[in-house]
């Protein structure tokens, strides 16, 4: 079964005809070629596919693309404008928070959702907010540092 849907991704409307069993991760990556959203497990265990849905971070691998219709979807590609990095992206670069980079898009989006809700979180709140985003490289220290540095600026 196919369905025609309109997705609002990074403030742009896309009209798509997709099989209804496609997840949002698949449609972002394969139809829209927004490959910044990563697929690490497909079952909500790792957070690599994190996107923002109406400002809230969710595992896009567990959202049917058809169910994303009518919601505002934000991916990592929507964060920087004309090459200007978002303050969180800049902080991740400066603090050495990125190693292999596979968790980074999701991690940054979870951090953004946190700061949008709570501009000056403590360390525990930061760790809590990114606890659904696994990172195997960094030990999280420099990720927490980066988020904290942006929180302070706010």
């Amino acid at each position: 079964m196919k369905k025609m849907i309109t997705l609002n991704v990074n403030d742009r409307e896309y009209d798509l005809v997709i099989p209804v069993n496609r997840t949002l991760t698949q449609v972002l990556r394969e139809n829209l070629k927004l490959t910044g959203t990563k697929q690490g497990c497909g079952v909500g265990d790792c957070g690599s596919c994190t996107i923002l849905m109406d400002g809230r971070p969710v595992n896009s691998c567990l959202v049917l693309a058809a169910e994303a219709e009518g919601h505002k979807i934000e991916t990592i590609e929507g964060l920087s404008e004309e090459g200007q990095l978002h303050p969180l992206q800049q902080a991740f670069v400066e603090h050495g928070s990125i190693q292999c980079g596979f968790c980074s898009p999701g991690m940054i989006l979870s951090a953004k959702a946190l700061l949008d809700k709570n501009p000056s979180p403590g360390e525990t709140e930061i760790r809590e907010a990114i606890s659904g985003n696994l990172c195997r490289c960094t030990g999280y220290q420099k990720i927490v540092d980066a988020i904290q540095s942006v929180a302070k600026k706010v």
Partner: peptide, 9 residues
């Protein structure tokens, strides 16, 4: 429950 990402869904 789960993680912040799971809890949002």
């Amino acid at each position: 429950l789960g993680s912040p990402l799971i809890r949002n869904r």
